[in-house]
Design a protein around this nucleic acid. Structure first.
Lengths: 204, 204
DNA sequence: CGAATATACGAGCGTTCGCTCGTGTTTTGC
DNA sequence: GCAAAACACGAGCGAACGCTCGTATATTCG
């Protein structure tokens, strides 16, 4: 009953190990996907025994959960930077797209494990829950742009439009990442073209 | 070696069983995803013993493969109907979108197992191979529209534009399917809005 | 120093799951 | 009618994998 098992006091060494294990997990998840990633493989990739791994994480899902938390934190700052650098009212649509799309694409490019964890259709409920706050925050930010640029939109329209933008983004980022060099620039330009075509009638 | 194991002669009963097993597999895949679907669960859902299942399919992947083939065949006819009913040169962009988007969305709505098999990021290579022909065919059809309506496009631009359209489609169909009633109509309208905004500059 | 706790190891337990095998029943072909 | 082949059953094998446990070393604290 309420076997709360007070969290053990970590040493600096332990904190380092946890970070190493998470990095190894990100790499293994990115390479093999969530289901096919074995905890022993993660431990091996981190240069650690299975037993040690389980001193820091109670089970496989907790690893994914902690990794999700780390991604969410990183992504939040990436988003904050992206949205903070823009005066929504002053800049034109093309400028807006450049300032917001580029850094978020860059984040996804730098964190290949991110998609392997969150792009899965049969994601454990807890992982989905971890991803939700970042999704909600992103949605809110996009909505706030529309609020400033297209105040005539109803709340429902605003939310729907923002949701569609994010959806488009998530669909096309893999395309951008998969492309190489000049191809990638073309794909990125195409992503912006789609968003521009969709948004031009809404926020001139 | 080349232990070709000539294919056994099926009875009518056997053909029926195979179809039943595939339908059961579609249902189980749709409900639990590919990895979490157990062959015993598929057999049970089909009202068949595990041993019987393995008289028709050598392994789990072969079941998915055969199901993929069935989906591909069904989808091919759905696409054929969708594209055959339109005179690309005569109709305007809105009409074009209505005539093509609606039936393909309807197909996805009627085949919920389809996505569970093909929307997976860590799809076995053989499954991806089974999906490729249908993707290629769809790409070709979309390209042929552009060829008729925007002959000034280079081959590379044409292919890229068609690929983006399909990508957008695949990203937004789940949104349409997840929505209910009026919400669904709104989502469908939004899908067309995205495509229209993207394509209007290309094929007036 | 010594006790308490954190970290580390890796063999292997328990369970799940894809798949097999021995056996029995139905259908086909002659 | 009778053999051969297809169909059907379900207990359970073997391997994979998440995770544990006994044990040993390192670190902290008084």
């Amino acid at each position: 009953m309420a076997d709360q098992a007070r969290p053990r006091r970590r040493q600096a060494r332990g904190e380092r190990r946890m970070a190493e294990i998470l990095s190894a997990a990100a790499e293994v998840f990115a390479r093999t996907g969530y289901e096919n990633a074995t905890t022993n493989a993660i431990a091996a990739a981190a240069g650690v025994s299975p037993g040690s791994l389980y001193q820091f994480f109670p089970n496989k899902e907790a690893i994914a959960q902690a990794l999700a938390d780390r991604f969410v934190a990183d992504m939040r700052t990436a988003h904050q930077e992206a949205f903070a650098s823009v005066d929504f009212a002053a800049v034109d649509l093309d400028g807006l797209l450049d300032r917001i799309v580029d850094p978020i694409v860059a984040f996804n490019l730098a964190n290949p494990g991110f998609k392997a964890l969150f792009a899965r259709p049969d994601m454990p409920a807890e992982l989905a829950a971890a991803a939700r706050p970042i999704q909600a925050a992103l949605l809110g930010r996009v909505e706030s742009i529309f609020e400033a640029r297209a105040p005539e939109l109803s709340a429902a329209e605003r939310e729907r439009t923002a949701g569609v933008c994010i959806r488009i983004f998530q669909a096309m980022v893999p395309m951008v990442i998969a492309a190489e060099g000049g191809e990638r620039d073309a794909a990125l330009a195409e992503l912006k073209k789609v968003l521009r075509g969709y948004l031009a009638p809404v926020i001139g």
